[in-house]
Amino acid sequence: MQYNWNWGVLLQEPYLGWLISGVGWTIAVASAAWVIAFTLGSVVGVARTLPNRWARGVATAYVELLRNVPLLVQLFIWYFVVPELLPDDWGRWVKRDLPLPEYTTAVIGLGFYTASRVAEQVRSGIESISRGQSMAGYASGLTTLQLYRYVLLPVAFRVIVPPLTSEFLTIFKNSSLALTIGVLELTAQSRQITEYTFQGFEAFTAATVMYVVITLTVTAGMSLVERRARIPGFIAKGG
């Protein structure tokens, strides 16, 4: 194979700037999407465990719909289809005046999709807590809201830190799909550098290293969270 290695290209302008900007967008898409995924996912996950049948039904429908359609398809639907389905005024606003349309759409698509996965983690965390805990809470006069707030969720979230870490990492990797609707994040910038310089090995190696650095940082942060939240003498019990 004939290939002219040139690592120096990565440090030349404008390519270095592109890479840095790509990292910035990747972090911006993934972090904003994670905020949606975590908040909405927690609400939906809790709803799946409530005594109320309607709440459970709506939450189950959300999870089954969002986690069973490929993420790429969902991004296309949010970007190309949803604006057409909105009432005329809204659709026109989305197409003409929505600030950062590609970015916003990517954040919504990725956030709503990941929320369905977070919801399942939250549900399994709550269901891992024995029924006796709820009984003890109710027996002391707590309302359902108080029971979740003070008894169930603090334990459930601690239990699911490891699987939530995986979701958090996945959202960074999945954010690369945002390039398909025009967000110039890390993968898109690497591809662009390849097209301008024909130095694909270098460009994608750089992208790989950046992704690994980002995800290892997240992993380190989450294990810090895990250690901080550890309960003295507590071993999670099944059922």
């Binding site: 805990q133 003890a136 109710y138 027996a139 002391s140 003070y150």
Partner: peptide, 16 residues
Amino acid sequence: RARIGMVFQNFELYPH
């Protein structure tokens, strides 16, 4: 319920 105390077989203290 707030006026009736209850004690369970498995204690059910809040672990956190």
